[in-house]
Design a protein around this nucleic acid. Structure first.
Lengths: 133, 133
DNA sequence: CAGCATCCGAAGGGATACTG
DNA sequence: CAGTATCCCTTCGGATGCTG
């Protein structure tokens, strides 16, 4: 999929529309924790605790919440093994797999432009600082 | 770039790491408003008011805030024309352009799987409903 | 181990009013 | 027109404690 010459295509309007299901779904995955979980899962199958250890900084509560949302939208599949202690495993569905490339793109972008961004921030903050003088 | 057999590559660790600049930058763009603004801007140049009209549902305050963040990170370039009334234009920088493909991917994904997701939600909610019975 | 419930402080986000 | 500041309510998100 190449960069188009037109600024935006009409199909994008759906996602842009307020109050539509598309917008709601978009908002559901367009957040830090959801994207990180998708990225970490990749094509592996992980248990709750393993996942929590890999997504650094996420709290127990937020991981639960994020996983429920992704499960509800069919991005993540939850498998319960009725043992003692319980073993619950998470993996991406086909739809979830289809998101991996996009998420990876964002990670790659961050790495690629990190230095540039750091410079931009310094310049921005400097300008603000002496504007406030 | 094909799907790798390994679950995750080591370079991704940077973005995953807590408290690092990479993680902060990632969080900055991995949110609804920032992504929608980037998507709407595309390769066009828009004024504040035009942008506000196109990003449906965004408030004056949130647009300002989002644009400041993107400007600070060098994703968006802000140009002020010292006229009366003032004319301020926004467009994506080269770094911002590099994000378009990714954002578009997320929009495309949403459209592509929307029906499937709707079904998944119904099934999920139904299961929950009679579990609560 | 996994998950739900609760409490509570912090941040998000809308409405309004005021400057250049 | 663009931007800042203020007020105020809502949601986010962490910490803790309790169940199967």
């Amino acid at each position: 999929m190449e960069t188009e010459q037109v600024g935006r295509r009409d199909e994008d309007r759906d996602v842009t529309r307020v109050d539509s299901l598309a917008r709601e779904v978009f908002a559901g995955i367009a957040n830090k924790w959801a994207l990180l979980v998708i990225n970490i899962l990749g094509e592996r199958t992980l248990r709750f605790t393993e996942l929590r250890a890999e997504v650094e900084g996420i709290s127990h509560k937020m991981l639960t919440q994020t996983l429920r949302g992704l499960e509800r939208d069919g991005v993540v599949r939850r498998t319960v093994h009725p043992t003692v202690p319980p073993r619950v495993e998470y993996r991406l569905t086909e739809a979830g797999q289809a998101l991996r490339g996009t998420v990876n793109g964002m990670c790659a972008w961050t790495r690629r432009y990190l230095d540039e961004i750091e410079g931009a921030r310094r310049r921005f903050d400097a300008r603000r600082a002496d504007a406030a003088r």
